[in-house]
């Protein structure tokens, strides 16, 4: 699988290494600081809405603390990686003109699309593993009552389905939209909107229904450690991921390479 190998070990190598080290270090530092936080927070009276915004009333237990501190922000960073990586391997390669020679060889577009999607996904898995490694490195030095090592190490992989969903969305938009910039921009906008929508749904009365349209709700990132996995939620995410991948694959099959036009435009023109 030369295309997968090249994408992962050549094109995405530094992204994966960078995000892996960054997120691993972040996770390690957060957990290492847990005892200090616990001691200072127990003396602090926080308003009730703050706890609600964070998704829990008591954030001094290890499970709550790690969930809030790590999994409020790390999924967003992981999504940034998937957007950069997924739009790069498809739209970036096309815009640089280098995809042309690859697609002129006897390989199917399906294979190009799937090997590159697999490279992005494997990169995401590696980054999650690096985050777990960061946690593992500090685990012997911090007392985390009620949180076994297996749960701690598994926690970063809880972000994986959500990250892969956005990877699929970015791949899909990279195959549909004319430029890499457009694909990355729209994917990021959807991610940010989705993130804010969940916060609004949690905080503001009358916006409850909003949560059901944002993938961040189904990701359960603020409940995985405390509530366990809700399988149908993860199923919604996995199903959406597959649907977006299929759509992206179809769009890439139909795409006219290197002319900076969206296949949508052509479809609209024909329909009109």
């Amino acid at each position: 699988m030369p295309l997968l190998r090249k994408a992962l070990f050549d094109d995405l190598r530094w992204h994966v290494v960078g995000y892996g080290i960054g997120l691993g270090a972040w996770a390690a530092i957060i957990v290492a600081l847990y005892p200090t936080f616990r001691d200072s927070m127990s003396e602090l009276e926080l308003p009730a809405w703050y706890g609600e915004f964070l998704g829990t009333a008591d954030w001094t237990t290890p499970r709550n603390f790690i969930q809030i501190e790590l999994f409020s922000w790390i999924p967003l960073l992981l999504i940034v990686y998937t957007v950069v990586a997924a739009t790069g391997v498809i739209a970036g390669d096309e815009q640089r003109g280098t995809l042309e020679l690859v697609l002129a060889q006897p390989v199917s577009r399906t294979r190009v699309f799937l090997e590159r999607a697999a490279a992005v996904a494997l990169g995401t898995v590696v980054i999650c593993a690096c985050t777990s490694l960061g946690l593992l490195a500090v685990w012997p030095f911090v007392d985390l009552p009620g949180l076994p090592l297996s749960d701690l190490l598994a926690a970063p992989f809880g972000m994986l389905p959500l990250a892969l969903l956005f990877a699929a969305l970015a791949l899909c938009l990279a195959a549909l939209l004319p430029t890499r910039g457009a694909a990355a921009g729209v994917t990021t906008a959807i991610a940010v909107t989705g993130y804010i929508a969940l916060a609004v749904a949690d905080l503001a009365d009358g916006f409850d229904a909003l949560r059901y349209v944002t993938p961040f709700y189904y990701a359960d990132q603020k409940a995985l450690l405390t509530e366990g996995v809700v399988w149908w939620h993860q199923g919604v995410i996995a199903g959406s991921t597959l649907a977006l991948l299929a759509l992206g694959w179809r769009a890439f099959e139909r795409r006219e390479i290197g002319i900076g036009r969206s296949p949508w435009r052509e479809l609209l023109r024909r329909a009109a």
Binding site: D10, L101, Q105, P106
Partner: peptide
């Protein structure tokens, strides 16, 4: 096929690029 606007992966050596194309062929 030789594209009119030839763009090659710049960080690869000529040899590596030819190997990549060969593996795809």
């Amino acid at each position: 096929y030789l594209p009119g606007d030839l763009r090659l992966y710049e960080h690869l050596t000529g040899h590596e690029l030819l190997e990549l194309i060969a593996s795809l062929r």
